[in-house]
Design a protein around this nucleic acid. Structure first.
Lengths: 290, 290
DNA sequence: TCGCACCGATCGCGCAACACGATAGATCTA
DNA sequence: TAGATCTATCGTGTTGCGCGATCGGTGCGA
């Protein structure tokens, strides 16, 4: 019996993705008969059914689930091997998965991506938004290549390599009608009387503010929870709530007043990447960051 | 141009291992011409030389080094995929790399290995001796599947999953001629007058004792440093030094006196495995441990 | 209920690529 | 200089991969 080959893994992954032999074959640019035959001989060699197929539906067997996790790693490693070889002669190729929080301020993401793509047109970039915790876990698990994270200044990224990009104090944003609107400086104590818009409980964005109020032994009401800084600012401008946000985001938004907070929380922004063997595309991205 | 296949990676790995096309071909059970051709077409597709060959010597180019790291991961993932598929129908196959410190007491390694092999004859087992720190790093890096570790009771394994096997107090061993030989109990204070045999500086085995002497604010002389408990006991029996060791090891050795140490250090023995996707062979090993 | 659309398995055929053995060419050794 | 060693290359045979066509089974709609 012939040993397993990458082609069979690629076909099997396509079937798992589409749950359909015919579409999988199209995706692999081969005839359905060829793909069927390869899957069949793969299953014969393994001695296990990977797919349970009725003529109407294709599903993964438990064996198929377990097998394809490794098969995916295998194919990814093969792509990375090609990318490494190309990188050794100065050509950066491959794909790059970037995670960003909704409050990146240290760098202008579109500019960074534009420069990166100009320097390395052979790299396909995909962007993903998310929370710092989820994304640093994804980086550690290899599901993201790099991620921009924001943490309270008392914390550090866990389980990943990281570089500090900026360290800044959050500012308060209030609507022009707010009683504090004409102040230049406020304290948490005075802000705590108003309802807040903030990030969802559990996110590091929320922790940035929560920790400060805890340290000051103050209670506050969070009336709105959302992951979007943009929406948060619009809610503030309507006078529905106040918020603590990074200064660059706050100042870029019209229709709100920005107040410095004397005992306000500090946050740190990091760029994080995997501890183990970042891909050439990842190394190039980190090198291209200011 | 054809896409890369596992066959080419297997051949390339064999060449990297043997540094010789002819021997690599034998290892792969193909003719040398076939292997040469595959390597050639692989290099052509990558657009990079992987091997610098004179007709006398074969060496890896930098591109080859980088490429083969990933290629190795790729074929290992392929093997694991096969093992996972087999495991899904109850057959445990594959290879298992076990790391052990020289002072395992919680389990009898030969017995464990014997039972494991009887239950899972399809698994090839390889044993490696080493220090706790080095081996837990190897487990984290995927170079070992499981490792038995010994740590001071104030520490825990880092970067790996681990299960505590036993927690015990170290005993003192002295030669029958030693002034303390007839005591049943001693203190660190009284032991500290004698020269010690102990594990090398930096190892966790050494840390077990060092921490205890530091806590007691005592100085001692370590006259002999070695990684073998067996040798350590022979040195002790000759009267050249005293030592602190796990009780089961000490009692198993003739020609030494074993003393309990009132303020003696405690150690914990763990079995550790990788955080990420242990192989079927690894899962079976952990399940087979008492 | 019948026909039709959909889907995977199978078969026969043509071709590409893989492996083999032999040999050429290069390099180091005695 | 002869020989040993090692990789590249060439010509040849075979295998297995992909293709198109077709079959058989299933669910849906008229």
């Amino acid at each position: 019996m012939e040993p397993m080959e990458l082609r069979q893994l690629r076909y099997a992954l396509a079937v798992a993705e589409t749950r359909n032999f015919t579409r999988a074959a199209r995706q692999c640019f081969v005839a359905q008969s060829a793909l069927s035959h390869q899957i069949g001989s793969l299953e014969k060699e393994l001695g296990v059914q990977l797919f349970a197929r009725t003529s109407r539906r294709v599903e993964l067997t438990p064996a198929g689930e377990a097998f394809l996790v490794r098969a995916r790693q295998c194919v990814e490693a093969a792509e990375l091997a090609v990318a490494e070889a190309a990188a050794a002669v100065g050509e950066v190729r491959g794909r790059l998965k970037v995670g960003i929080i909704p409050t990146v301020t240290a760098v202008d993401i579109p500019t960074v991506l534009q420069h990166y793509r100009e320097q390395h047109p052979q790299v396909g970039v995909s962007l993903h938004m998310g929370a710092s915790d989820a994304m640093s876990a994804q980086v550690a698990a290899g599901e993201l290549d790099v991620a921009f994270l924001g943490l309270p200044d008392s914390r550090e990224p866990q389980g990943v390599e990281a570089r500090e990009l900026t360290r800044e104090k959050l500012v308060a944003v209030v609507s022009p009608d707010h009683p504090l609107a004409d102040q230049k400086k406020v304290t948490l104590r005075r802000l705590a009387d108003s309802p807040f818009a903030d990030f969802p409980v559990g996110s590091q964005g929320r922790a940035q503010s929560d920790l400060a109020f805890e340290a000051a032994e103050l209670e506050r009401e969070v009336a709105y929870e959302l992951m979007s800084a943009e929406l948060m600012l619009r809610i503030v401008s309507r006078g529905l709530a106040v918020a603590l946000l990074p200064a660059p985001l706050a100042r870029a938004h019209p229709g709100v007043r920005v107040l410095s907070v004397i005992d306000g929380p500090r946050r740190v922004e990091y760029v994080a990447w995997s501890r183990f063997n970042p891909s050439p595309a990842t190394r190039a991205f980190l090198a291209a960051l200011p």
